[in-house]
C-alpha cells in the first residue's frame, strides 16, 4: 500500500465525511464496534477495518467491503463507542455514494412476488431505502 498526502485527504474521503457528518480521524480503532456488531460474522471486513481503510485514504477498499451492505444501522456500535463516533452514518454514506453511482445490490424486479405478500411493509420499505435508492 502506497500512502501519499493527497491520497489521505482525497475528495472522496471528504465527501464521505460530508455525507456522514462524521470525522474519520475521530476513530482510534479500538474495535469495540466490531466486537459488538450483531452481523459481524456476515461482514467479511470487520466494521472498524472499514473505517481504517478510509483513514488510509483507501476508499475503494471500503466500498468493496460487504460490511457496507450488511450493516443494519442497528446503532449498537455507536451506542457503545467510546468516542461517540457514529459508524452507522459512515456506512450509510458509503451506501449512498454507491447507490448514487447506480451500484445498487438489489433490483426490485428480482424480489420474489410472494415476499410482498408475506413481509411487513416496514421491511420492504426499509429494504428499498437501504438497497435500491
Amino acid at each position: 500500500m502506497k500512502l501519499t498526502r493527497h491520497g489521505l485527504h482525497s475528495e472522496m474521503i471528504e465527501k464521505i465525511e460530508r455525507i456522514s457528518g462524521e470525522e474519520i480521524s475521530k476513530c482510534y480503532q479500538c474495535g469495540k464496534c466490531s466486537a459488538g456488531c450483531p452481523v459481524a460474522q456476515e461482514m467479511g471486513t470487520l466494521p472498524h477495518r472499514v473505517v481504517r481503510h478510509l483513514q488510509l485514504g483507501q476508499d475503494e477498499r471500503a466500498f468493496e467491503a460487504e460490511a457496507v451492505w450488511f450493516c443494519t444501522s442497528c446503532h449498537t456500535c455507536e451506542s457503545r463507542c467510546p468516542k461517540g463516533f457514529d459508524l452507522s452514518r459512515v456506512m450509510e454514506a458509503l451506501r449512498a455514494v454507491l447507490l448514487r453511482r447506480g451500484e445498487a445490490p438489489v433490483r426490485p424486479e428480482d424480489l420474489p412476488a410472494e415476499l410482498f405478500a408475506a413481509a411487513p411493509q416496514q421491511a420492504i420499505v426499509s429494504c428499498y431505502r437501504k438497497y435500491v435508492s
Binding site: 474495535g31 466486537a35 467510546p82
Partner: peptide
C-alpha cells in the same frame, strides 16, 4: 488488542464478546 463490547452470563460462565484487531 481491542475492546470488549458486551459481557453476559451463559450457563455458569461469563461470555465476553471482544475483538482482536491484530488478527481482525
Amino acid at each position: 488488542r481491542g475492546r470488549v463490547s458486551r459481557v453476559y452470563p451463559e450457563g455458569d460462565k461469563i461470555l465476553v464478546k471482544g475483538v482482536d484487531t491484530l488478527s481482525d
